[in-house]
Design a protein around this nucleic acid. Structure first.
Length: 374
DNA sequence: CCCTGCGGGGATG
DNA sequence: CATCCCCGCAGGG
């Protein structure tokens, strides 16, 4: 499914698990290989039916990380951790950023947080957000399995993701904090509190920015370090860009679901501007406008076992082949580079768009470090 | 706040 | 038996 484009760039997996006999194991085997000649580098974007053997020292493997948004799934087996893919959150307007990138947000892992997330608006065009769920494994989400065994951590994935890559965890976190910085800056309500705090602390006039670093980034100022113009200044401030009228029609996710609830909304050809109320600060006009772009809270394809189950297999394709073939270009980095946050997080380079940068810290030495050879 | 893992429990095959 | 899934809880950043 996700072939082509990526293959060439694909990391050179000199994986242990890639070499002949090593692939013979299955995560469910009673006994897994005891002697592994070489462990794998952590794979940020495992896809298709792959297996990897990581060192039990590998931090990312220890935490069962993935750049796909994977949530824990109970398989009633404490020895094998199972996680399933949540897909990707896209803009319902199918908008593009100024540099032509699509919006692929990372679905929140926590169910509650995810629902809240879907009620929010596209950071680029303020349109509604939509969760594109993963059906890469026979109509079900792709699953990843983790198993610790001695000095190794065995990994196996089942299914091929049928959707674009979401932001990485770090990208999502970065965007969140930027967002937060912005919102806590403009709203007059919160502002009061802010000002008071500031005054009490500094006794200075609130007109001065107390948080230069954050604000400069969040504001439309171009951060000092400009990387190949890839920069997007506050992508959120501009409701303009290219929300061409083309709605990714409801079919896609709603297709099978045919959620009765959402019948009333869609096709009003309104200008997307109508729902822009989302964050418009100075538009508290008449109605408090409950939830601007929230009418699409449909259960989507979420509830695994039913949306389209009735008819044919779980694979709902066919009806409306609205599932866009993923533009698998790259990391979908529409968000401004995040200030080098230094050491706290071991998942260091996550903020880099480069696929392989994941496991390797910014420091070269680490690249040279031998990969546990036995 | 959210991520992560655990485990009970329901529904389906 | 298996596989899905949902839910709440607890620990931790």
């Amino acid at each position: 499914m996700l072939k082509g484009a990526d293959d060439s760039v694909m990391e050179q997996e000199d994986s242990a698990s890639q070499h002949g006999e090593m692939t013979s194991w299955d995560i469910n085997d009673i006994k897994l290989p005891q002697h592994v000649s070489q462990t794998d580098w952590f794979q940020e974007w495992p896809d298709s039916y792959v297996k990897h053997i990581y060192s039990s020292e590998d931090k990312n493997a220890q935490r069962h990380h993935s750049s796909w948004a994977m949530r824990n799934t109970n398989n009633h087996n404490s020895r094998i951790l199972k996680k399933s893919c949540l897909g990707v959150v896209v803009c319902g307007n199918n908008c593009s950023t100024l540099d032509g990138k699509k919006i692929y947000l990372r679905p929140a892992i926590c169910d509650k947080a995810r629902q809240k997330q879907q009620r929010k608006c596209c950071p680029n065009c303020n349109g509604p957000l939509r969760l594109l769920s993963c059906r890469g494994h026979g109509g079900y989400p792709v699953t990843n399995f983790w198993r610790h065994e001695g000095q190794f951590i065995f990994f196996q994935s089942k299914g091929a993701h049928d959707h674009p890559r979401p932001e990485t965890k770090l990208e999502a976190e970065a965007r969140r904090s930027i967002q937060k910085a912005k919102t806590s800056f403009s709203p007059s309500s919160l502002r009061q509190k802010r000002i008071q705090e500031i005054e009490s602390l500094t006794g200075a006039a609130p007109t001065q920015e107390p948080l230069p670093s954050l604000l400069s980034n969040a504001d439309a100022h171009v951060p000092p370090a400009d990387f190949r113009g890839h920069l997007r200044e506050s992508s959120q401030e501009a409701p303009l860009s290219s929300c061409s009228g083309q709605f990714a029609h409801p079919g896609a996710a709603g297709a099978a679901g045919a959620a009765p609830t959402w019948g009333r909304s869609p096709s009003l050809g309104r200008s997307p501007r109508a729902e822009g109320l989302c964050r418009v600060p100075a538009a508290p006009s008449t109605a408090p406008s409950p939830r601007p772009c929230a009418q699409h809270v449909l259960p989507v394809a979420q509830g695994g076992r039913e949306p389209f189950g009735s008819g044919g297999g779980p694979v709902g394709h066919g009806s409306c082949g609205a599932r866009s073939p993923l533009p698998h270009g790259g990391g979908c980095l529409w968000l401004p580079p995040y200030p080098p946050q230094g050491g706290p997080c071991p998942m260091a380079s996550g903020a880099q768009p480069h696929p392989q940068a994941w496991a390797s810290a910014p420091s070269l030495p680490q690249l040279l470090q031998p990969r546990h050879v036995f």
